[in-house]
């Protein structure tokens, strides 16, 4: 978007004085809002909004064959859809590298945190429950990863486990709620002219030279990390961001 590109110099000029284009502090998130159970036909769902960014997460269950190396564990899969309704530059079609990266970064955080007790999804030999988490980007005003992570965690926290009878899922009958062992949030920081900010909006993202996404759990572990973009990060910058991520993930998880 050319409009976002023109603002680049202005954003950088402001950051020199530790100011942001929308008046926020460098480490401040925009307003966060969660709407639970938006899709009643899914076993779990939530819309997460961070500022003007909106992501809908839907959770569906299916009966699956487990992976050969994990015969007693349920299968968890993440997908994402950058719908053309969300941004003028998004086109319909197979997922591009940004869409794949987003789904995989959110997936790795939740998987590494062992949030979902996959052993509880075992049914019988050769049969397990599969959990499909689909992340639908509805409106893109920056920081899709954190918003998608929040939508996924909120949806999973409100997911009901379907009843299984004779090897089939009985839709709309449930045996209880999906238990989450550990809650995790992904927090993304962008580096613009050497200044690091949290929760970049779309204009700031265009000006950004690199980003670091860190997933930190409610009990203080780093569960996943992904550096993206051209800029490098020093060890000290990473250490500071781990502290900031722990603080911010607690703040984010309060909303789910």
């Amino acid at each position: 978007m050319i409009l976002e590109e023109i603002k680049e110099d202005y954003i950088k000029e402001l950051l020199k004085q530790k100011k942001r284009i929308d008046g926020r502090a460098l480490d401040a998130y925009r307003e966060i809002k969660i709407t639970k159970d938006f899709i009643q036909n899914a076993e779990g769902s939530a819309i997460a909004e961070v500022g003007g960014t909106k992501v809908l997460a839907g959770v569906k269950f299916d009966i699956m064959t487990p992976f050969a190396d994990r015969p007693d564990e349920g299968v968890v899969m993440f997908g994402s859809e950058f719908s053309p309704i969300a941004h003028p530059d998004f086109n319909a079609g197979p997922p591009d590298e940004n869409s794949i990266e987003l789904a995989r970064v959110v997936d790795r955080g939740i998987r590494s945190a062992e949030s979902i007790d996959v052993k509880s999804l075992f049914l019988e030999e050769g049969k397990v429950l599969g959990v499909f988490v689909d992340l639908y980007i509805l409106d893109h005003s920056g920081n899709l990863i954190d918003t998608a992570g929040l939508a996924a965690m909120s949806a999973l926290k409100n997911t009901k486990i379907p009843k299984v009878e004779d090897g089939k899922i009985i839709r709309n009958e449930f045996t209880g709620k999906l238990k989450l062992v550990r809650e995790v949030a992904v927090t993304t920081f962008e580096k613009i002219d050497g200044v690091i900010i949290a929760d970049a909006n779309s204009e700031e993202e265009v000006a950004s030279e690199g980003r670091m996404s860190l997933s930190t759990s409610s009990d203080g572990f780093v569960c996943s990390a992904q550096k993206s973009g051209k800029a490098g990060f020093s060890k000290q910058e990473l250490m500071d961001l781990i502290d900031l991520s722990s603080e911010k993930s607690k703040e984010l998880l309060r909303h789910i």
Partner: peptide
């Protein structure tokens, strides 16, 4: 750090 990825607790 030009590439940094992490998995696990």
């Amino acid at each position: 750090l030009l590439l940094f990825q992490l998995d696990g607790l």
